[in-house]
């Protein structure tokens, strides 16, 4: 079957979709958006978390056909989403354009293997969108559907606190503690 929907503001179309395919498979294998991750495919890890019409959902549990005509935001669209909300993207040669949550995860050391990271970013981004100054318990509850096997979650909490603090800053104001002073980083294109 053919499936057409909007991803990160762009209309995407996929043909010859098998009816049993999930939104996750279509994003990863048919639309060239592998950022959402395939860790459990049973809704028990949150690595494939995307926004579907604004709601955080596990893309592995949405049938591709159900997304027809709807709007999806993936980790690849977080920076645009932040811009639309009027948040200031990160500056600097290396991480230009990262959303505040993305930048905070890098700065706080919340990324190790990184496989859980895209899902956590989408979930954390939604949390801060709705709750500008979440308590630690709020952060833990909001992220309780996202497993991480590397970090023990401490730096993830740090990252979300940092992102919330930075997002709460009026535009143009200096960001609070940017985490450890460090060399910047930059990646080549894929």
């Amino acid at each position: 079957m053919r499936v057409t929907f909007t991803v990160n503001g762009r209309r995407h179309e996929a043909d010859d979709v098998w009816e049993g395919e999930s939104l996750l498979y279509v994003l990863r294998e048919r639309m060239g958006l592998p950022g959402s991750k395939n860790a459990c495919e049973q809704g028990e890890c949150g690595s494939c978390t995307v926004r579907l019409d604004g709601e955080s959902v596990c893309a592995c549990l949405v049938a591709a056909g159900q997304v027809e005509g709807r709007e999806v935001v993936t980790v690849e669209g977080l920076a645009d989403l932040a811009r639309q909300r009027g948040e200031t993207p990160a500056e600097g040669a290396a991480d230009a354009g990262l959303s505040p949550v993305q930048k905070a995860f890098v700065d706080a050391g919340a990324v190790q293997c990184g496989f859980c990271t895209p899902g956590l970013l989408v979930a954390a981004d939604e949390l801060i969108e709705h709750n500008a100054s979440p308590s630690d318990a709020d952060i833990r509850e909001a992220l309780s559907g996202n497993l991480c096997r590397c970090t023990g979650y401490e730096t993830i909490l740090d990252a979300v606190r940092l992102a919330a603090a930075r997002t709460g800053q009026p535009a143009g104001a200096g960001a609070p503690d940017a985490g450890p002073d460090a060399g910047t980083s930059q990646g080549g294109a894929i």
Partner: peptide, 9 residues
Amino acid sequence: VGSPQIRNR
């Protein structure tokens, strides 16, 4: 039930 993501669906 499940997680926030599951509760949304």
